[in-house]
């Protein structure tokens, strides 16, 4: 469904992605793990046209999207839930959802109702400003907003960041549900244990390179992952 080959992204003199290759197949949940600053967000931003790669190729559903502009991706079927959620703070919950349907033509009121059914709390808050929601509510809204574009591939950037464990639990359940409804998911996480329990496969990134990849089940017991990512987490808790 998505195939990235030797992609290089630079910020001025900094090379944030040093030629990464990976793929995501239809129906999968794939996770991209890595420490802070490894290049995970840059990878997702590249997949949404926010940073064009200076080298390499991105193919989505057989179409070369390497140079496609950011505002065209939603219509192509790629939804992006950005790092830090990025809710429009001075728009109501409902308007935020409407923004998610910006790239679509025709009526989307059914989709709004579908989002309210999936996230009842958003229905209760529909008239509230996005900026006044709690972190968990904002994350749900960010996911619902991306789903409003009916993406076939959903990109999630650290959906668990800054959320209480119970809320994280819920967000991960929702991600599983979204895949169950037929949307492919590519999720970036620092929370490796939880991400690997959710995902089918995983890639591990260090300093702008993908250093290894495997099935999620194997990565969960992989000593390299355990030492660096899971080990850290155990210490943190």
């Amino acid at each position: 469904m998505l195939e990235v080959t030797n992609a290089v992204v630079r910020y001025g003199a900094i090379t944030a992605l040093q030629g990464i290759s990976f793929d995501v197949r239809e129906g999968e949940i794939v996770t991209l793990l890595g420490a802070n600053g490894a290049g995970k967000s840059t990878t997702l931003r590249m997949l949404s046209g926010l940073h064009a790669p200076v080298e390499g190729r991105i193919v989505f559903e057989g179409r070369d999207v390497t140079m496609t502009k950011a505002h065209q991706f939603m219509a192509l079927g790629i939804g992006h839930v950005p790092e830090g959620r990025r809710i429009f703070p001075q728009m109501s919950v409902e308007e935020n959802l409407e923004m998610g349907a910006f790239a679509r033509r025709g009526s989307y009121s059914d989709d709004i109702e579908r989002m309210y059914a999936m996230f009842p709390i958003l229905k209760d808050r529909r008239k509230q400003m996005g900026g006044n929601l709690s972190g968990g509510e904002q994350q749900m809204l960010a996911i619902a907003r991306a789903l409003m574009g009916r993406p076939r591939l959903l990109l999630l950037d650290e959906p668990s960041m800054g959320l209480a464990p119970m809320v994280v639990e819920m967000i991960f359940r929702i991600i599983a549900e979204i895949r169950g409804q037929g949307t492919t998911v590519f999720v970036v996480e620092q929370n490796a244990a939880q991400a690997l329990r959710l995902a089918d496969r995983g890639y591990v990134m260090e300093n702008g390179r993908i250093v290894f990849d495997d099935t999620a089940a194997n990565l969960l017991v992989d000593p390299r992952v355990r030492a660096v990512y899971l080990g850290e987490e155990v210490e943190e808790v």
């Binding site: 950011a70 939603m74 950005p82 923004m99 998610g100 910006f102 790239a103 907003r145 574009g149």
Partner: peptide, 11 residues
């Protein structure tokens, strides 16, 4: 409010 996120929405 947030130009970059607006572009992710298709603006």
């Amino acid at each position: 409010q947030d130009a970059e996120t607006a572009s992710l929405m298709g603006v």
